[in-house]
Amino acid sequence: MAMTTTPEADHSRAAATYRPAANRLGLWLFLASETFLFAAFISSRFVVSGTDQPEHLNQGLALLLTLLLLLSSISAFRAEAAMAHDNRKLFHREMLTTIVLGLLFLVGVGVEFNEAVADFPVGTIYGSSFFMLIGLHAFHVLTGILALGVVWNLGRKGHYSSQDHWPVEGVVKYWHFVDLMWVAIYPTLYLFGGS
């Protein structure tokens, strides 16, 4: 028996019929699982520090960050739609826009962290939740950007078509998910309670 490492099993009689469904379900299950991870951290914040908030929260910057991510979800959506219509030029542009918005978000997080260290350092209980939650999310943004980069690069080389672009669909769904998690984290840290 020779070992084959054929990518997700072409030798299967039924591969063509189950592959799209399997990919989709696999991604949704992964996202469901990730939701539990975020839920664990978000609930930890409420357990250890209720809805307490420190004096100095940079609300303006947080709103800007939220806006950046929401915009990036729109461009990601447009990138996917473009590939579904074989519109490669638009695909490139929208993917790049998404990546750039993601990078800007990370820069913003850096700025925010820099300020926060002075106001509520890691060693305070709000600081713990703050750095943990935003750090976890930023890590997901980073992986999202890397994945977007990979897909953008492959798309540039002509790997996808309107018929066959699961990776585009997958990475965009992941990006929406990361965006959605921010929509939960933002109020958790910035809006609930308050002083």
Partner: peptide
């Protein structure tokens, strides 16, 4: 990383 989630003295639980 110096967080205090489980440090009762610093407000953790």
């Amino acid at each position: 990383a110096g967080t205090v989630f489980f440090n009762g003295g610093a407000g953790g639980d």
